[in-house]
Deep mutational scan, measured.
Amino acid sequence: MEVRTIKVFTTVDNINLHTQVVDMSMTYGQQFGPTYLDGADVTKIKPHNSHEGKTFYVLPNDDTLRVEAFEYYHTTDPSFLGRYMSALNHTKKWKYPQVNGLTSIKWADNNCYLATALLTLQQIELKFNPPALQDAYYRARAGEAANFCALILAYCNKTVGELGDVRETMSYLFQHANLDSCKRVLNVVCKTCGQQQTTLKGVEAVMYMGTLSYEQFKKGVQIPCTCGKQATKYLVQQESPFVMMSAPPAQYELKHGTFTCASEYTGNYQCGHYKHITSKETLYCIDGALLTKSSEYKGPITDVFYKENSYTTTIK
């Protein structure tokens, strides 16, 4: 009895394709271990004539594949690729409408935090270190965002349907971005203890939790000093293409032309909904596939993004 075979390709990165001759009487799992086709788990399936010449994702289970996976995804987590594939199996079914010149995501599976993050990423200057993220990001900007969303979920250790947080998501993504040249110098002034300067680099240099107003941050924000008295913390120097200011959701007025974009969060910790506000020729609110415009805006804002380049204080 002759062994019926077909020729397929296996890959971990969709760049390096490895030619395989597979036995049609055995499952993919018996031949390769966990195997995925377009995100779908085909591990328990036997090869079919229609699979001839198709590319299958496999887990990096030998040295060659491990090197290829690390170079593309910059992670050695053995569960990463499987999590990416199972997320992709959902995100490829989502709709990605162009809204006001940006790629958004039609609401499904509690994905409003991903839509808000995706919209924000198209408006701030950011370059990702893992080629996987950078490639998928370019495709997302062009309207094909399924891979990018699935990668975000995998890097953030999230599953489809789980509630997510924009600030946490951005923080994970910033860790995989090139923020080497970003720098922030802060000064804390206390009447009792004097003053202390701190220099922050990388992710810490672009994120701040405690106030939404970048102007206020430049002037000074009140913080408790270690001595128990009130101290003032203010920005001395900022070198970065953008800054992200966050605070627990509270009524906040966004003035046209003073910011790049913002995240609105309605609801409580267990259950809520994100919308995205962007400042173009007027203010726009993007909620999944829905767009509304207004000249002014007041609502429960939790993150505001500002364009920056270089700032030095005039406070002496």
Rank of each mutant, 00 (worst) to 15 (best):
A140C: 07
L126E: 00
L133W: 00
N61M: 14
C149T: 08
D62M: 04
E125L: 03
K255I: 11
W107N: 14
D41K: 04
T258H: 15
I286W: 05
Y252G: 03
Y306F: 04
R141N: 06
L121F: 12
F56V: 08
K218A: 04
V58P: 01
Y36W: 15
Q134C: 11
H273D: 07
V236W: 07
F56C: 12
K298Q: 15
V67F: 12
L118F: 13
E239I: 13
V236S: 09
M207A: 08
F128K: 01
T35A: 08
S279I: 02
A262S: 06
Q20S: 12
P131N: 02
T169K: 00
N309L: 12
L88H: 01
R66W: 07
R167I: 03
F70E: 08
N110V: 01
H176R: 12
G299R: 07
K191Y: 15
L212F: 00
P249L: 03
K229P: 05
N309D: 10
G39Y: 08
G82Y: 09
T27P: 13
E144K: 12
Y137I: 07
K255M: 08
T282N: 09
S79F: 15
K293R: 10
L59M: 13
S86I: 12
I315L: 14
T278F: 10
L212Q: 06
K158E: 00
C156T: 09
V203N: 08
R83D: 01
T159D: 15
F217C: 05
N309E: 09
F305D: 04
Q30V: 12
H18A: 08
D109L: 02
G272N: 05
I223F: 09
V99E: 15
L153K: 01
M244D: 06
V58F: 04
C227Y: 01
K95R: 13
A87F: 02
G101Q: 06
T192N: 15
T282E: 14
E2F: 11
P34K: 12
G164V: 03
S279W: 08
C261Q: 04
A132G: 11
K316N: 09
V189L: 08
Q238V: 02
E52D: 14
K275N: 00
T292M: 13
T76P: 14
D303A: 08
I152R: 02
Q196I: 12
K183W: 09
Q98A: 11
T211I: 08
P300F: 12
Q270A: 06
G82D: 06
P78R: 00
Q230N: 08
F259A: 05
I45R: 13
I45L: 13
T314Y: 15
V42G: 00
D180N: 00
E2K: 11
D303I: 03
M26L: 14
K275W: 02
L37C: 12
T278K: 08
A142N: 12
Y311F: 13
Q238L: 02
F174V: 01
T278H: 04
S86H: 15
V21M: 13
N187M: 11
T313P: 08
Q195I: 13
F9I: 11
R139V: 04
P97H: 11
N309K: 15
V166P: 04
A87G: 00
K95V: 14
P300Q: 14
K54W: 13
T75M: 08
E264G: 15
G210Y: 03
M170T: 00
T116P: 02
V185P: 03
L254P: 05
S79M: 12
I152M: 13
N129E: 15
N187S: 12
K54A: 12
Y113W: 12
W107Q: 15
T198I: 12
K46H: 15
N178Y: 10
V42R: 03
T313L: 13
A231T: 04
Q98L: 09
G161L: 03
C261H: 06
V42L: 12
V203E: 04
H48T: 10
K54N: 11
L121I: 15
M24V: 14
K293C: 12
F56R: 00
C227A: 04
E215S: 09
Q216S: 10
K218C: 06
G299F: 03
E168T: 14
H276I: 01
L163Y: 15
R139M: 09
S279P: 04
T169V: 11
V189G: 03
T27H: 07
Y306K: 05
Y73L: 01
I301P: 08
V8A: 08
V3L: 14
S181L: 08
K307E: 14
Q123R: 03
T5Y: 08
E253C: 13
L126K: 01
E68Q: 13
L173S: 00
F128P: 01
P300A: 15
Y73T: 01
N49D: 09
K95H: 11
V12E: 09
E215G: 06
L114G: 02
D109H: 08
I45C: 09
K219V: 09
C193D: 04
S310V: 14
F56S: 01
Y113G: 04
L81D: 00
D165Y: 14
G194F: 02
Q30A: 12
A40L: 13
C271W: 11
Q196M: 11
V22H: 01
Q196Y: 10
E2W: 09
C285A: 03
K127A: 12
A142R: 13
G210W: 03
G143H: 02
R141T: 13
W94F: 04
D135F: 08
K183R: 10
P130Y: 02
N147M: 08
V99L: 11
N129K: 07
F9N: 11
D13I: 00
